[in-house]
Amino acid sequence: MILVDRTTRPLTLTPFGLALRNRGAILSEELCNLKAQVLDAGRGVKPDLRIGLVDSFAATCGSAFTRQMLGRVAQLSVRTGLSPQQGESLLRRDLDLIITSDPLMDANDVVRYRLFTERYFVITPKALDKPLQSLDDLRALANVLPVVRFNRLSQVGLQIERHMRGLGVRMPNRLELDNADALTAMVADGIGWAVTSPMCFLQACTWVENVTAHLVPQLSLERSLYLVARRNEYSAFFADACETARNVILDTFLPRLSALGKGVETLVTIDEEDSREYF
């Protein structure tokens, strides 16, 4: 039985070849899952794990999370980066578990757990002694001071951009940065104002003394961080990781946020333990 028609360029598959490819792809996928499924069946066996952490989580909670995870795995490899890259790596099997702001809603065969939700707020240079309470105040600010924005290739940057456009706040593109630390530093230095999240704010804790935080209720923009893994792989371990990450948020992240003394910890909400969401 001929599998490949070599008289055409590019070569094409015969019906036999198509059957082999389609069934072979399923078998290959199963093979890739084999190790995780065997480890899962053994439960007590410690896996080698590759974890991806979104930058803001890595900078604020990464060390506490990693320290606790180390006791549960044989070998741990941690990679940090932007959420879209983490998601792609998980689906490509370059990573086994990710903490990300992108729940990969379009992907089948992944399981997600929401760690917490945080509302965005506005930061301005401390020298700019002017309270911001409404969207009109924000529009007025946008007319006199440039916005310092997150890179629009990042999940946060894209989300803020879309939302502000929806609210009718026009923000000319002058300066964009790819990390929260540099963004807050620019604001602290008086270059402009920015929209940021509590976790990104904590990431830049060196600079927070020189900025003013404005919790503008009408901004009504929020993001959640999720723990995401491939479904039915390392499932016992996934539950452990969720518990660990939740404890790190409660015991490390929130107290450190409160210690900043800016009131931004009130923007963070965590699901009750009995209503946690796996989907």
């Binding site: 082999l20 490819r21 072979g24 792809a25 078998l27």
Partner: peptide, 10 residues
């Protein structure tokens, strides 16, 4: 060999 076949055709 199956994995290679799938990889080439995909």
């Amino acid at each position: 060999a199956v994995q290679v076949f799938v990889a080439v055709t995909e």
